[in-house]
Nucleic acid binder design. Structure first.
Lengths: 148, 148
DNA sequence: TCCTTCTGGTTTAATTTAGCAACCAGCTAT
DNA sequence: ATAGCTGGTTGCTAAATTAAACCAGAAGGA
């Protein structure tokens, strides 16, 4: 009995979850975006079991979300870095972060927040729009099966 | 030994994952957005075990993402619906969908796609921007701890 | 050089979760 | 009335998660 595999799904959400839906995986990606690169730093930062971290990193590398490369700091150790594919998960993490900020914290409760280094300003709220720029809610959307 | 609970984290991503990071949960929310409301319809659509569906729905209701209400079709059964909080997960699902569309399908491979019913047009690519409207990549962002 | 610590894991064992099938009581349609 | 649907629950097994111990190679210090 294996956990259901969704990597053949025709729904991109399901297929994405097959890559990044595992427990801990998105937190590893989040940390990687903040500059964490080394095995022990991930482990310290997240506090997860080392063997689990091993399997998660292996899967992320196998899926092309991260790469393992020799460290750039002179030591003969290695580091894990996000690929372009991995960095492209930024909108997912930001959307999740904004949802959490809005619904999961009491007013005044402290939480971390992203800002743009260049301007020092906070981020715009992510919205779903169609190609005309019209905001779309759940009720405004339909689903088709295409093959582009 | 229980699976790590992250609902006290100061990072909104972690706290969000505590609500919606479980296996199957985001797929249930996705189906709910497409109009699925009944227990057996979720089960048929997703093909997950019924006991797992039960615990997922209970947690979603407990977390305020969905509600259980008497069905509107005259029968005395019940239906599960997204709350406003649940519908607010749309950007998360769209971001995940767009990531999957871009990286997880071979050219020409068929997959489902969202469109705006009003205009018939597809969705704009979700981007991360600061309040000036400047596009931000991973390297352009910093993290602070605030308490708004 | 020797000793200690850090790194990046692997192994083992205990606990929890997921998947499957069977079962069941209360509705509904025929 | 009766057969099937609905919305579960229960019990079992396989797999995943956890924590803790262990380990070899590299780095750093005396």
């Amino acid at each position: 009995m294996q956990r259901r595999c969704l990597d053949d799904s025709t729904c991109p959400v399901a297929r994405s979850l097959d890559s990044i839906g595992d427990w801990w995986t998105l937190l590893i990606v989040r940390d990687a975006m903040l500059g964490v690169r080394r095995f022990s730093d991930f482990q310290r930062s997240l506090g997860l079991a080392r063997n689990v971290l091993t399997t998660r990193l292996k899967k992320l590398v196998a899926d092309g979300v991260m790469t393992m490369a020799p460290a750039t700091d002179g030591t003969s150790y290695q580091e894990y870095r996000l690929t372009e594919k991995g960095e492209a998960l930024l909108p997912v993490l930001v959307a999740m972060r904004q949802w959490g900020e809005r619904f999961l914290y009491a007013p005044g409760e402290p939480h971390s927040e992203l800002f743009a280094i260049a301007s020092g300003k906070a981020l715009e709220q992510i919205r779903v729009r169609d190609l005309d720029g019209q905001d779309c809610g759940v009720a405004d959307l339909g689903l088709v099966t295409a093959s582009k």
